[in-house]
């Protein structure tokens, strides 16, 4: 299995010179099996660039199949949806899979609202030319999409819950825990540790530098050290710091990585836009 980061930024897309190495696009991750099956996680602005790349493949001919997992529906995880080109080609089959938001509305109603006529000229999911299905999954469930086994867990994210994913393909496993804040940040919930048990790669929310966390407690995000504890307890083989703060410049992220790496034996790196990881 191969993984590529298309968007690693949290909350807000950042343009400019200080964000070029790690990238300014909001969250989107692509997984590819050795046989070429594809799965996406989240549709932040990183998805717009990926969408263009996919158009050089079967998606331009209306023959693409794509499952997409959503961690939740905060804007930075769905803002690429209206600009993801494969949606505009008739014949493509795209499955959007996620939990109903733990607050507010259903997943389908939320995405419809995103495309409501005052907000978007698309005026509703039904105007996307591709075949689009919205599929809800329950927390703790396990299901299969072609090439991948997926297990979900609900994790606390401020005033709501987001969905964490454990994904296995080609005998390798990753866990995606973006947008999470444990009630005691230094004692992660067992549900998260279990989801990440023995994974080859853990992708974890690292929105805050450790020293900034106190000021932002309760905002729904983790300091870099939270991912370390999850990785160590779960026996994860590698840790990717993810969902970087919009205020974190490339140099600041370098600093967080070196300080985080110094405190653990688990290999740590910061997710960078455009980079591939061989799992």
């Amino acid at each position: 299995m191969k993984l590529r980061f298309w968007g690693v930024r949290g909350s807000f897309a950042m343009s400019g010179r200080e964000f070029l190495r790690y990238g300014g696009n909001t969250t989107c991750v692509e997984l590819l099996t050795d046989a070429g099956e594809r799965l996406l996680i989240d549709l932040g602005t990183g998805a717009t660039e990926l969408g263009k790349t996919l158009m050089s493949r079967e998606f331009s001919k209306g023959a693409g199949n794509l499952p997409i997992l959503l961690s939740h529906t905060h804007l930075d995880h769905i803002q690429g949806l209206p600009f993801f080109t494969p949606f505009f080609i008739r014949g493509n089959t795209i499955r959007i899979i996620g939990a109903n938001p733990s607050v507010g509305s259903t997943l389908e109603a939320t995405l419809q609202n995103q495309l409501a006529p005052h907000y978007s000229p698309l005026n509703g999911l039904e105007n996307l030319a591709a075949g689009v299905s919205i599929e809800t999954v329950a927390a703790g469930s396990t299901f299969e999409v072609p090439g991948f086994m997926v297990t979900t867990a609900a994790v606390p994210h401020g005033s709501m819950w987001s969905t964490g994913y454990r994904i296995t393909a080609d005998g390798k496993t990753i866990a995606y825990l973006s947008d999470v804040e444990y009630p005691n940040i230094d004692d992660p919930l067992p549900v998260a540790v279990n989801l990440a048990r023995d994974v080859d790669l853990l992708i974890h929310d690292a929105m805050h530098a450790d020293e900034d966390y106190e000021l932002r407690r309760g905002w729904g995000h983790s300091p870099a050290r939270a991912g370390v504890v999850v990785a160590e307890r779960a026996g994860a083989k590698k840790l990717a710091l993810f969902h970087h703060s919009p205020d974190a410049t490339d140099d600041m992220i370098d600093e967080v990585v070196s300080r985080t790496a110094a405190r653990t034996a688990v290999p740590v790196f910061a997710a960078a836009e455009g980079s591939y990881v061989d799992i």
Partner: peptide, 14 residues
């Protein structure tokens, strides 16, 4: 939509 990256540094991506 906002466009981060090396290709929009001078005119801006916001």
């Amino acid at each position: 939509y906002p466009v981060p990256g090396a290709a929009t540094v001078r005119y801006g991506g916001q």
